[in-house]
Design a protein around this nucleic acid. Structure first.
Lengths: 388, 388
DNA sequence: TCTAATTGTTAGTAGAGTTTACTAACTGAC
DNA sequence: GTCAGTTAGTAAACTCTACTAACAATTAGA
């Protein structure tokens, strides 16, 4: 009988924890995120304010806050100068100066970009690396080098690295296919994570842009962001969450056939793909032709209007089926603003059930230049802090 | 000092609980749901099996199960007859015979239908009420009467009532608009809840159908179900959750313009709406014309093929943008099966980026007759038991 | 100066899940 | 038949989380 005590014959439970059951500590983690979220979006406030906002007791909030103080996620800012009876409140805020994030944008033409950002999405430092026809592992090498360089520029604790890349990215941060770079199943997230020793998140560039606009822009919980560059991609937010799709390919609308009346031949082999109308190279080619015509201005207008119409034709079923509240375009302002945007708006309304007020608003994304960098940063904030 | 004790001067915390913070009891509720879900989908098993599946300890699972036994949600089925060393297991299963649900389908033509269902979605009892041109409050009255009748037919504890209704339904179970019944802001959920004294859930009929197919059918987490009846509606599952939309109108695709080549005039005032091609009345009208032509069979084939093509044209951008894995059609089998379904499949592939294997499968929903009833029941199961 | 109001903390408690250690009950080998 | 090994289920004690109760600190206003 005594021998039993010597063996570690405990029944070897919980080998994996795959069941996704909720432990008390999961609830705690959620509540910690709520505190960070509240401070991030509403700004500095006292523990008592947090208590009222979250519906937790002051005691619990105090405990959560002291936990976050220890981790460096929040800081005390001294007494509030509000004039009120009672003990003066101590303001608490998320540690805006002491935490930073790396964002990377691999979707630009012939340049890889990275930046150090603060928690509000402001860009503090930029680093770049120009690409000249490199492909495959060479680009991966450049990305890793660039990431290291960006990490070196940080002036505060780094929460992690976010990346927006062209191509299809699965939930594990593996770039399944990226034709531009000739990538196939590149485990970008794991490579970066190992190199930099920081939590890393990788998404498609348009998805990152959608995150950015959802957070810093209008913020409808049902929206699509269409990113017009070398190709055409999009990121969808459905019910406040990013749509990923059955094969991680949600948002890939560049090669959807538009309309029922033919169109140009696409490099993918079909005719009438959205990209043949909407991509920046396609638009610039058409505009060049227009400039050579007898009425250059009018011809250019027609080109832009038609592109906008085509986009709206492709988007209308999506907007209608998902009841999206916002359509956001991101790309070169000089191409998108004006005739093109107006055509999108008008055609969209023509093709949807008329309503008053209009169920969907169409606009350009602010700050198209840096939207992927900021979106990549947002992904890290969400993941590491649970901050919206 | 003593006076203080008389007043309830405790600091009046938690007035609302709107903050959505997570309490330990929320975690408990979640784990109870997980047990029910697991038993419902995987069938009877022992506490030890549950422990391994969920990743909770046997002790905790025992506690959860005894709680559910008390509530009548699960039952013990006696010893397992598996031949294994060790103490024989006691099988536990969700209380399939002791719990029932009411499902209602208000979207049929000129008849209101209700049924008593068991937890597996089997229909045990049916009740109906025919409608003859009634509208507005009269229909509401009929619905309430029918619900009471159905409740009376139940032979076990009722978990609640689920309703699939035509029209747009918001998150509070208010039917914002339902043209067929001339309803406007009818608080159907609250009315039923009060009348029957049971938890009630109301959704659009196509959304209910999507729930049914998602649960009992193929079960892709990214799918669309298109319901073809008097009109055309759809229900979307994106990332495993139902898309609701910015104005609770997700899935309303009947009046999206299809293609770029005109079409018939729709009663909504536009031309080329999907409904003018796809609804059952439209199809039957076109088939009648075809029957009168010189080559009736060939003409009918053309009608069905063209309808399928139009649906695919509208769906292609949605399937592409959301990367849906399944497209499911629900409606009269004699119309949808064959040429129409084939045309949908073919056109969809033509208009999407070619891939191997095909990224999207197209099929008919099983049991179109009762799909709304079953979907309505599923909604209750989800809500009351947390069962998938 | 006294009262009321407000913030934040300490002390103690209830609930949820865990670890540890047990009993019950069975298979299979000797 | 007996015993080792295995599996199921339970009881007790511990940890973690959030709660209630009570209090000290601090200020505005009568």
């Amino acid at each position: 009988m005594e021998a039993l005590r010597d063996r570690p014959h405990t029944d070897r439970q919980r080998p994996d924890r795959t069941g996704a059951a909720t432990l008390p500590s999961d609830g705690r983690a959620h509540n910690l995120s709520l505190v960070r979220q509240t401070l991030h979006s509403a700004g500095a406030m006292s523990r008592a304010d947090l208590s009222r906002t979250l519906g937790l007791t002051r005691v619990t909030v105090s405990d959560l806050v002291s936990d976050l103080l220890e981790r460096g996620h929040v800081v005390e800012l001294g007494h509030s100068d509000e004039v009120r009876p009672g003990k003066p409140a101590i303001l608490v805020d998320i540690n805006r100066r002491g935490l930073q994030v790396i964002g990377m944008d691999l979707a630009e033409n012939s340049v890889l970009r990275a930046a150090v950002l603060d928690l509000d999405g402001n860009i503090l430092e930029r680093v770049e690396r120009s690409l000249s026809e490199e492909t495959g592992p060479n680009v991966v090498h450049q990305v890793l080098e660039l990431a290291s360089e960006a990490v070196g520029r940080a002036t505060a604790t780094l929460l992690g690295i976010g990346v927006g890349t062209p191509g299809i990215v699965n939930a594990d941060g593996v770039v399944t296919t990226a034709p531009n770079f000739e990538w196939k199943d590149v485990a970008l997230r794991d490579l970066l994570q190992e190199r930099a020793g920081l939590p890393t998140l990788v998404s498609n560039d348009a998805d990152a842009a959608a995150h950015a606009d959802h957070t810093f822009g209008g913020g409808s919980d049902d929206m699509v962001l269409v990113k017009i560059g070398r190709g055409v991609g999009s990121g969808l937010i459905v019910g406040g969450r990013r749509a990923r799709g059955a094969h991680s390919a949600a948002g890939e609308i560049g090669h959807v056939t538009v309309g029922t009346d033919g169109g140009s031949l696409c490099k993918c082999g079909k005719t009438g793909c959205l990209e043949t109308w909407m991509s920046v190279p396609s638009l610039e080619r058409a505009l060049a032709e227009a400039a050579a015509s007898s009425k250059p201005d009018a011809a250019a207008d027609v080109v832009l209007r038609e592109a906008g119409e085509r986009l709206a034709i492709a988007l209308a079923p999506v907007v209608g089926a998902l009841d999206l509240g916002e359509v956001v375009l991101s790309g070169p302002r000089e191409l998108l603003e004006g005739p093109l945007l107006n055509a999108v708006q008008q055609t969209l309304l023509e093709r949807l059930l008329h309503q008053d007020p209009s169920p969907v608003s169409v606009r350009l994304a602010a700050d198209a230049q840096d939207i992927v960098l900021r979106g990549a940063a947002v992904m890290v904030l969400w993941n590491q802090l649970g901050v919206a």
